[in-house]
Computed example of a mutant assay.
Amino acid sequence: MKKILTGAVAAIALVGIASPAAAQTNQRHYNIAGIQLTNPTGFGGAIAQGLAEFAIAGGVGTRYTAVADAPSDSESATPTVTTTFNLTGSVNKDCSFYAGNNSNATNIDFGVIGVRTGNNENVNSAFEMVGPAFANIETLTAGCNFNNEVSITKNNVNGLVNSAAGGYDTDEFQANIPYSVTAAWTGVSVNTVTSGTGQSLAVSTSQLGNTIQQGAWRSNMTINFNAPAITNKGLVAGNYAGSTTLVLSAL
């Protein structure tokens, strides 16, 4: 007996492994009169096992078996799991231009546009403009948060127009005052990703309008109006009016 079970106590160690599939215990041991047979397999093993069982049935020798079984993982184990979270949101396209707190802020009045009214003026200078007329506008808040177009358009290519001029000699007088417009800001060209630099858009005295495309920008903007002095003709008396429209539009 001592040859079969060494020591006074046999300790059974139960082990479970949560990992890729491992061989499960299936042990069969015989000791028949000192002849040991361990886990017989194959055709020869089957014969030897049959003889061992026959001997045990006749009261000779002993047998030890250990069988263990447990169900496998429900699915293939994955030691590393990677999950990607896709975060999304949206920002609405917007353009901004602070133009004061009411409509009066955009009414630009040159006041009296001075002409040479002295009776000692040479006839070739009489009623001509004394000097240029100008206006300057600045807003500290302007821009668009996407590719955009900046456009400036006059309502009349002739500039400021006296719509009730009456009759006049067109060789000596005119009833309009041409003016130019120049806007300036800090921005970038359309579809360009870079640091902002000085940008501008000009409409000459002979142009009706002009446009430029930009990438997203925000900065102050200045708009200058300049009506050069008319020195080759006199101005017909009356009220002169015109309008200029600035449009910032996201593309």
Rank of each mutant, 00 (worst) to 15 (best):
I4V: 11
I4A: 09
A10Q: 14
I12G: 04
A13H: 13
Q27N: 14
R28E: 08
Y30Q: 02
N31K: 00
I32E: 04
Q36F: 09
Q36G: 08
Q36D: 12
P40H: 03
G42S: 06
F43C: 06
A46P: 05
I47K: 04
I47S: 01
A48Y: 06
L51T: 03
L51H: 01
L51G: 01
L51V: 05
E53P: 01
A55Y: 02
A57S: 07
A57F: 06
G58E: 08
V60H: 01
T62E: 11
A66K: 11
V67K: 12
V67P: 06
A68W: 05
A68I: 08
S72K: 01
E75V: 00
E75W: 00
A77S: 12
A77G: 10
A77L: 11
T78F: 01
T78K: 02
V81W: 01
F85S: 10
F85K: 08
F85R: 04
L87G: 11
G89R: 09
G89T: 15
S90P: 03
V91H: 13
K93H: 12
K93T: 14
D94N: 15
C95R: 01
A99Q: 08
D109C: 10
G114W: 03
G114S: 10
R116E: 13
N120E: 14
E121R: 15
N124Y: 05
S125L: 15
A126L: 15
M129Y: 09
V130P: 03
G131W: 12
E138L: 08
T141F: 04
T141N: 13
G143V: 08
F146T: 12
V150I: 07
V150F: 00
G159N: 02
N162M: 11
S163N: 14
S163E: 15
G167C: 05
D169I: 04
E172I: 13
Q174L: 10
Q174V: 09
N176L: 04
T182C: 03
T186F: 10
G187K: 01
S189F: 08
N191S: 05
T192P: 00
V193Y: 10
T197R: 06
T197A: 10
T197K: 05
S200E: 13
S200Q: 12
A202I: 04
T205W: 07
Q207W: 02
N210L: 07
Q213Y: 13
Q214A: 14
Q214R: 11
G215A: 14
A216I: 15
A216W: 13
W217E: 13
R218W: 09
P228N: 12
K233H: 04
G238N: 09
Y240D: 07
L246S: 06
L248T: 02
S249D: 15
L251H: 06
